[in-house]
Each structure stands twice: as structure tokens, then as C-alpha cells.
Write a protein that binds this DNA or RNA. Structure first.
Lengths: 151, 151
DNA sequence: AAATTTTAGTTGTTCAGTTAACTAATCATA
DNA sequence: TATGATTAGTTAACTGAACAACTAAAATTT
């Protein structure tokens, strides 16, 4: 793919902010996944974004994971299917609510939490090199405004 | 899907900037596509990001479109396949280079340029409401820095 | 209590991104 | 000029996103 980042070439074409945001996000996500892979972990970035919340607190429902990751239900279903295939999570039945399922990490998954976290941290650190904490906060604030505008 | 934008809920989890950027970009892209669809145009956002550069200048090669859109070759191949199916572009052979193909817009496509552009403009305008031009420029600058850091 | 509505999760289809392997044409070079 | 490397584009497999339609189990309403 093509990753040069001269977003100023769109002098005539000013309708592409969404494209640039999207592209930058994909660059980060792809790099993270490549770094996982280089280190020998076959975890996708999207799987990671789900696992993060399970490391934070185990035993959540799929709906909770939807809310936390901003992903829709079919996406969560499929990401969990793949995590189940690789034996990183298990689905169990909710004791009180027959519709819900509760997701638990396997031991195998808990063992790789630290190395994955290390890779994620380093990747993010490399990505934001040259940006101050204030700039990052500004960036997040603007992203939040844009998303809210679209609700 | 879930589009609430309170990115501050990650107090404990600070590794998710890429996820937030990615998510915001997808929100913009999805909204654009929905707006095209509501107006009766079956053009995807990714198709639009390619068409934009053909409206700018017709008769480009696929490689040029890769460079301009930051997409890789398989993606461009498939996006053009779909644009060809819906008769919005045609592929022709390069007169001098047997490997290349030159992409032209059809009349059908030229006819919908203005309405699509109108929708794209309005969508972007709605998305950035509340942000100054300087903030937008800042945002683009930071996205460029991040992408360059990842090269 | 029965009927309706809402909620949790799954499935199917289409589209695009990522990676790898591939074909065919051109370019470089020895 | 013949060989090897590069370039343009395609194909295939896997993953996830978007959207719609679906099942089954609550929750709500009447």
C-alpha cells in the first residue's frame, strides 16, 4: 500500500478530511497488527481492541463489548468467533439472562497480556513521536467533536 | 453500531488513540456513504475517494490512483471493478505501456459529479461544525505527523 | 396471563483492507 | 541481445465493517 502522508496535495480537493482521518487510523491499526505479528502473536488489531477491555475486567457480555469498543454486534460476534477459534476467550451462558453470553479470557490469553501490552504501548509511542500530550488531547477532543456531530 | 463519542472513558486504558482515530474516520466515511445512498446514489465512500481524483483529472492509470488515494493495488483493482460494473468508469489500454490501464469516467458518471460533490461538501461541513479552519489544519498536520512516524 | 415490544446475539451478503503469490510487460544491464 | 530485475495489474484467502433479516429470551403493556 501507499503510505506517504503529504495531505497538502489536495489543494483543489478539500472534501477529504474523512479520508485522511480514516487513512491515518488504518495506518496505526495496521502497524500495530504487523508489530504483533512480527513478535509472533497472531492477534489482529481489532481483536486487541476487544481484549483490552477484557484485560481491564473479565466476564463482560458481548453487548458491553459493543458499547466499549464502538463496534456493532455482528462485528463483535465475528471477532469473538475468531478469538474463540484461537482459544483466547471462551463464551459462557449468562446465569440469569438466557439471551446473554459472558466472555472470559483463557489462561493462554492472560499469559500474553503483558507482551501484547508492551507492543501496543511501543507502537503508540512511536506513532505520536513529536506530538505533545496537549496536542494529543486536542486531537482526541476534535475527534470527539466530529463523531458527535455525526450522531 | 455504537457511535457515542466519549473518548474519555479510557482513563485506565491509554493505548487506544489508533482505535479512536480509526473509529472517527469510519464514522465520517459511513455517514458519507449513507448520505449518498439516501440521495439515491449507490456510490460507496471508497469509490468516491477514487472518483474525486478522476473528476479532478480524467485518464489516470491505476497506479496514479493508488498514489493519490493511499490505497494499495488490490483495493484499487476491486474498487474499479465495482465502478466498472455500475458503468461509472471504463478501463482502456495504455497506448505506450502494455502493462498500464487508463481509467476514464463515463458520461453517466460525469452527470452525477455535481450532486455527489454537493453531498460530500455538506457531509464534511456537518462533521466539522464547531471546529475552526485552524483547528482543522492542526488536525490534518497531526495526522500527517502520525502517518509519517509510522512509515 | 397473553400479546406486544425490546434486547442479545447470530447469520448472510456486499464491500474494502492486508498479505502473498501470481502474470505479463518493460527496463536495466551485462 | 539475452538475462534479470522492476513495474502494473490481477487473483485468492482471511479479516472486519455495514446493513438487513433473523431467532430466542426478556421486559412491557394491556
Amino acid at each position: 500500500m501507499n503510505r506517504q502522508a503529504d495531505f497538502s496535495k489536495n489543494k483543489k480537493i478539500a472534501h477529504l478530511l474523512g479520508h485522511y482521518i480514516n487513512d491515518t487510523g488504518r495506518n496505526m491499526v495496521r502497524t500495530l497488527q504487523q508489530n504483533f505479528r512480527k513478535a509472533g502473536y497472531g492477534v489482529t488489531a481489532e481483536q486487541w481492541f476487544v481484549l483490552v477491555w477484557l484485560f481491564d475486567k473479565d466476564g463482560r457480555t458481548q453487548q458491553e463489548l459493543c458499547d466499549l469498543t464502538y463496534k456493532d454486534k455482528p462485528s463483535i460476534t465475528r471477532i469473538l468467533n475468531n478469538l474463540e477459534k484461537t482459544k483466547l476467550i471462551i463464551r459462557t451462558e449468562h446465569p440469569a439472562d438466557g439471551r446473554s453470553k459472558i466472555i472470559y479470557l483463557t489462561e493462554k490469553c492472560k499469559e500474553i497480556e503483558r507482551p501484547l501490552l508492551e507492543i501496543a504501548d511501543q507502537t503508540q509511542l512511536a506513532a505520536i513521536k513529536g506530538l505533545s500530550k496537549m496536542e494529543i488531547a486536542e486531537c482526541k477532543r476534535m475527534l470527539g467533536i466530529i463523531t458527535n456531530n455525526l450522531l
